[in-house]
Design a protein around this nucleic acid. Structure first.
Lengths: 196, 196
DNA sequence: CACAAATGCAACACCTAAGTCTCACTTATG
DNA sequence: CATAAGTGAGACTTAGGTGTTGCATTTGTG
């Protein structure tokens, strides 16, 4: 019934500003999870009104941010062949990718509104695929912990600590930073979950 | 010069309300770290004005809360003879006490203002005495991790996860809850830090 | 008991942030 | 280049929280 509204494509600079705002939000919210939209707008070099034009509300902005992060995690799981490669190999690969993502996407964990139960922002799909990896690790005898939910929680908790380690920390040795963090994360998690 | 103001002692009910407010704050802030003073006052069964009378500002209330928590940690370290008992024994004792404290004192980790670096609210004294215990664990050959700061961070990160486990969780077996959590915390931490 | 202390209640001023709107302007794109 | 989309700047409303005050009332304590 409705006249076929000529699909005017979104203008390129508007699309560009969306990503600018998201980038700025990552930086600012990492420093202060309760930062105002004005601070984010300043960081993006835009007016506050423009932020409201691209994102209907603060909530919408945060959701877009988490959706983006989730997509990257999903991509990492696929990239690392989490469900087909030998589980220890997959764990290494995923860990390296995830640490990279966390470095760029320095989102404060507790950006959520009220009930800030850690890491609950992970999509069900990401959680399922991650848990599957821990099941395979258990079956392969790499860990003794049998509950994948528990494994994931421990993994993420340690991941935060590894992420927050300063660059020159003694735990990281003197080699490549990413390699060192990955090794520390993997060995710490395997130990925590009952390496044998 | 000043006349010796007759030291009128604080009235008993006022003192009682101070503890009521602190208790209410624990409950409410655990649910939402940004909860208003009005919610805390309601939980305490008092008027909001009374909260302001006992604590000059929101900041002062939070500081009192953290000070209380710190005192309890300090007491736990002493109670467990953290610096004199065999390190593994001390670790068990401290862990059991700390889990008890965390259960009562269910303060959300990130109540702090802006830069919510996890657990930075621990007083220097608590941190030092805790680190000392990890140094002793390393010297005794119980762990391979040598950096006490790293050990403490991992310990606290895992502590949060153990604390958040629901009561009937499979990891906890079917015995006494406190005993099971303590065992899980200790074994997980020792594994993470390079048990041998 | 008498008095001072403490509270409840309600009003107040103040602040910050979110979200909306207008209007003059710039800029992308057919 | 002509037009529509997008932006910046600013004013404005709304909402919620903090901190303060006055006053009547309750409650503890010497």
């Amino acid at each position: 019934m409705s006249a076929p509204t000529p699909p005017r494509p979104v203008r390129a600079d508007a699309e560009r500003n969306v990503t600018r705002i998201l980038e700025a939000a990552k930086v600012v919210l990492a420093d202060d999870p309760t930062a105002s939209l004005e601070r984010i707008a300043d960081e993006a070099g835009l007016a506050r009104a423009t932020v409201h034009r691209r994102f209907s509300s603060r909530k919408a902005l945060l959701e877009a941010l988490f959706a983006q992060l989730n997509d990257q995690y999903l991509h990492a799981l696929t990239e690392a062949r989490a469900e087909t490669a030998p589980p220890l190999v997959a764990l290494h690969r995923v860990t390296e990718l995830v640490i990279e993502i966390k470095f760029r996407h320095r989102l404060a964990v507790e950006v959520v509104n009220g009930s800030g139960v850690g890491h609950s922002f992970l999509s069900p799909e990401v959680q399922e695929r991650a848990k599957e990896l821990f099941v395979r690790l258990h079956e392969a005898g790499a860990i003794t912990a049998a509950n994948p939910s528990w494994c994931l929680r421990v993994y993420l908790a340690i991941l935060d600590e590894v992420h927050q380690l300063p660059v020159g920390a003694p735990e990281l040795g003197d080699g490549d930073d990413l390699t060192a963090r990955t090794a520390l994360q993997v060995s710490t998690v395997l130990g925590a979950l009952g390496h044998r």
